[in-house]
Write a protein that binds this DNA or RNA. Structure first.
Lengths: 337, 337
DNA sequence: CTGTTAGCGCCTTCAC
DNA sequence: GTGAAGGCGCTAACAG
C-alpha cells in the first residue's frame, strides 16, 4: 500500500532520479518540475522509506545510547538531554539498557555495532574495563561516558570525579566533620567512577590530617535508593556512628536521608549528607541535598558532538573531554543556617 | 569492510541461500554444511545487516515509544519497563519525546509511521485528542497510553483515573479533611488524564456532601516539581488555606511537600498531601507520599502485547485495556500514626 | 537539468 | 537439501 518514489515518478511522468532530487533538495531541478513533483508528493502523501535510504547510503541517522538503567534519575535526565540535543542534530536515539553488567555491555555493543542499525554509539559504561573495550575493537564510532580510563583507546567524555569528591569531603571537614562515612557503589576493576570518587575522598582526608575510617565505608551492589537506605542503617548500627556521610550518588543519599528521618536523626545537625550527580530531586529533597556534578546538558552535547565528528569521518587520537563540574552546597551539609 | 552473506558463502563454497538458512535456523540444512557454515560465520565474524533484512522483510523488530519527557520519573520508569519487556520479546525500543505538545505528537507520529523505521508505535499522548487522532488514520499499529477517549478508534491501555481520584479523595474525607485543594495539570480538550482525575475528585466530594472549592484549584502548565512548589505557595497565599492537597502526580506533590516544609507546615498534621503514579521516589520522600496508580510493568507488558498482536496482523475492533490500580496509603495523608 | 542503470545486503520463490 | 535469480526502495555513477 505504501507509495514509493517510483509511484510518484510515474504519476508525474519523470524519472525516479528527479523525484529523488526534489526530496533531497538538490540543486539543478527546474522550478517547474520541482513544483510538479512536490504537488504529486503531497497528493500521494509520499514519504521516503528511511530503511531503503539507510541501506543505500550506509548511514541511518540513528545513534545508540547504552545506559545502565533508565529508571535511575541521573540516566533518565541524561537520556532526556541526549534525545533533545540529538533532535537538533537531526538524529534519533535508540536506547538500550545494560543493567551495568559487563556481559550485557559487551553484547549490546557488538550487536548494535554490527547490525548497521546505528551510525554510532554512546556508552555509559559501568562494568566494562578499558582493556576489555580495547580488545573489542569497536567497528563503529563510540563515545564513552562516565569513566576515565588511562590509555583509553576510545573517545570519552567525563568530569574530574577525584577532584569533585575531594572538594565535597573538604567542604565537610571545613564544616567541622571528622567521622566521615562513605556509601560507595560496587568496586570495579580499573578506573570505575566509584573508585575515583573514593580516591578523592581519601585525598581530602589525608590533606586535612583527618583519619580515613575503613569501618565507616559501605559498598552497595547497586546505585539505588533502597541501597542507600540499607547502607545507612548498617552504618548506624556500628559502634561510633559517623557525623557525615558521603554517598556516591544522589539516590543513595536520598535513601540515607529517609533512614535518618525514620531514626529521628536530624540532618545536618547530627549527620551531614552529600551526594553526586545533582539530579533534579536533590533540589527538592528534605533537606535539600549537597551534591556535585557537571551539567547534564553539557555531557550530552559534548558526547554527541564528538560522536558526530567521528561519524563524519574524523580520524585522530581519541579525545578525552573533561567537563567542568560544580558543587551545590545545600541544607544537608550546611551546619550554620 | 563489513562481511556479508556472500562473503561467507564464497568462503565455504556454498550459495548465499544456504548461509541464510543457517543464520535463520531453517530446517533442511544437512548437519555437515551447517557446521561448516557456522564455522565460517564465526571465523569471519559475520553479522547480518539488520537494515537489509528489514528492508527485505518489511519488518524491523523496532518499536517506537513516544512519551512527553524522559526526565519525568513516571515516564522514565515506564520507559524502563518498556525497554526491558521489549527485550524479552526480541524487540528494540526507539524513544522520542513529544514534550506533550500536540503538534509534536502528530509530527513524530506521522514521521515514524511512514518512514518504516519501526513496526509499531506506543504513544503516551497528552495533547492529542481522540478526534485528531482518528483524522490521522495511522498507517502503523498504534497503542495509546494514559488517556481514555470515548469512541476511540485505536487500541489503548489505561486505568480508571476517575475511580482512582475518587478513592484518594474519599480517603482524605475519611481522615476528616474538608477543605481539599487540587493541584491539577493543564486542562486539555477531551478526556485527558487531568480532566478525568478532576472528575473523580468532584464525584467523591459530592458523594460525601463536602463542598468543592474552585478557589482551591490551581492548574499548572506542566507536570514538574517546580510547578507543584509554586502552586502550593499560591494556595497558601489565598485566604482560608486547605487542610488537604490532591496533586495530580507525584512530582507535583513532592514540589508541594518541599514548599510546606519551608513554610514550617507539618504534613500530614496540618495539611495532608496525595499524588498519583506511585513513582519510586514516593516511597522515599519525607513524609512518604500517598499515591495511586497501576503497576508500570503491567502497563508496559499489556501495551506491548496488544501492539505485537497487531503487528502480527490481528484485525478486529480497537481494544480498551483497563488495568487494575492500587492505592498506596502512606504518611503524607495518615493523620493517626 | 534529467533519464538510465546498477547495486546497498538480504530473503525468498522457483527450480534442480 | 541446495543453487540461481529477482527485488524490497532508494541513491550514486554515468551519460545525455
Amino acid at each position: 500500500v505504501a507509495v514509493t518514489l517510483r509511484d510518484v515518478a510515474a504519476h508525474v511522468g519523470v524519472s525516479p532520479r528527479t523525484v529523488s532530487n526534489v526530496v533531497n533538495n538538490f540543486r539543478y531541478v527546474s522550478p517547474a518540475t520541482r513544483i510538479l513533483v512536490q504537488a504529486a508528493i503531497d497528493e500521494l502523501d509520499y514519504r521516503p522509506n528511511l530503511l531503503a535510504r539507510s541501506l543505500r547510503q550506509g548511514r541511518t541517522a540513528v545513534i545508540g545510547f547504552l545506559l545502565p538503567e533508565l529508571d535511575v534519575p541521573y540516566f533518565s535526565e541524561l537520556a532526556h538531554e541526549m534525545v533533545e540535543h540529538a533532535h537538533t542534530l537531526g538524529l534519533t536515539v535508540l536506547i538500550d539498557e545494560t543493567t551495568g553488567s559487563q556481559e550485557r555491555e559487551v553484547e549490546l555493543l557488538s550487536v548494535l555495532a554490527r547490525a548497521r542499525q546505528v551510525d554510532g554509539i554512546i556508552l555509559s559504561a559501568i562494568g566494562l574495563s578499558g582493556r576489555r573495550l580495547a580488545e573489542l575493537r569497536p567497528t563503529l564510532p563510540l563515545v564513552l561516558l562516565g569513566e576515565r580510563t588511562t590509555g583509553s583507546t576510545v573517545d570519552h567524555v567525563t568530569f574530574d570525579n577525584v577532584e569533585a569528591a575531594r572538594q565535597l569531603v573538604k567542604h565537610l571537614i571545613d564544616q567541622g566533620r571528622r567521622r566521615i562515612a562513605v556509601i560507595a557503589a560496587p568496586a570495579s576493576p580499573g578506573f570505575a567512577t566509584s573508585n575515583l570518587r573514593m580516591r578523592g575522598c581519601q585525598s581530602a582526608l589525608w590533606a586535612a590530617g583527618v583519619p580515613y575510617l575503613p569501618e565507616l565505608t559501605v559498598r552497595t551492589p547497586r546505585w539505588h535508593r533502597t541501597e542507600g537506605y540499607r547502607a545507612m542503617a548498617e552504618l548506624l548500627d556500628r559502634p561510633n556512628p559517623p557525623d557525615a556521610v558521603v554517598a556516591f550518588n544522589d539516590v543513595l543519599a536520598i535513601g540515607a536521608l529517609r533512614l535518618l528521618h525514620e531514626r529521628g536523626i536530624s540532618v545536618p545537625q547530627r549527620i551531614a549528607v552529600t551526594g553526586f550527580d545533582n539530579i533534579e530531586d536533590s533540589r527538592f529533597s528534605i533537606p535539600t541535598l549537597t551534591t556535585a556534578g557537571p551539567e547534564k546538558a553539557d555531557v550530552a552535547r559534548r558526547a554527541l558532538d564528538v560522536l558526530v565528528e567521528r561519524i563524519a569521518g574524523h580520524t585522530g587520537p581519541p579525545r578525552a573531554v573533561a567537563l567542568p563540574f560544580s558543587l551545590q552546597l545545600r541544607d544537608s551539609s550546611l551546619s550554620s543556617r
